[in-house]
């Protein structure tokens, strides 16, 4: 093996050996945005992106979070950060912390990672929980329409 290719051999061995060979250094950020359910947002299964956030979608956001669908932080600039941890809670598949923040607007301080076109965020601190601020049910109703059962039945 030539001197030139030796570093590549070392890299190849590292890639083969490590369970997280591409784990990268993140960047500290502070982001303000809404905790959303990413499947409804990305897939359009229930309508456009404006309708699957806020109060209109709150019940569904609870269902999806409890159901183990990844939650994201939809930032003010439209970037979606897939949330990996919140204040040390790594339960990102249906965990209690993320469930308690469904539809909430938060200011988060944490570490941002990018991988294969997606943004990821480890929230080290919820600096401010602004509560549910996107009151959009008057525009969209409940999304999905059956989210709120008829109380008379």
């Amino acid at each position: 093996m030539t001197y030139f290719f030796r570093p590549l051999a070392v890299l190849a061995a590292a890639l083969a050996a490590s369970p997280a060979a591409f784990a990268a250094e993140g960047t500290r950020v502070q982001v303000r945005g809404e905790i959303i359910d990413t499947w409804c947002y990305y897939s359009g299964v229930m309508g456009g992106p404006e309708s699957v956030v806020g109060t209109a979608h709150h019940t569904c956001a609870l269902w999806c979070s409890a159901g183990g669908i990844p939650v994201g932080l939809l930032a003010e600039d439209g970037t979606v950060y897939m949330v990996l941890k919140i204040e040390g809670d790594d339960g990102n598949a249906g965990g209690d912390t993320q469930l308690s923040l469904a539809s909430h607007e938060i200011t988060a301080d944490g570490i941002h990672y990018e991988r294969d076109g997606l943004n990821y965020l480890v929230v080290e601190e919820v600096v401010t929980d602004h509560g549910i601020t996107n009151v959009n049910h008057e525009d969209f109703g409940a999304i999905p329409g059956f989210a709120i059962p008829d109380p008379s039945k």
Binding site: P19, A20, F22, A23, A24, G26, G68, P70, L84, K85, D90, G91, N92, A93, G95, I111, Y113, R115, Y120, V122
Partner: peptide, 23 residues
Amino acid sequence: VVDATCEITGDCPANCGDGKRQL
């Protein structure tokens, strides 16, 4: 099949987080 948090951050508990984590 990998633990997504492990893959991205290098924090790698046993058995892909044992159901707590996204894969």
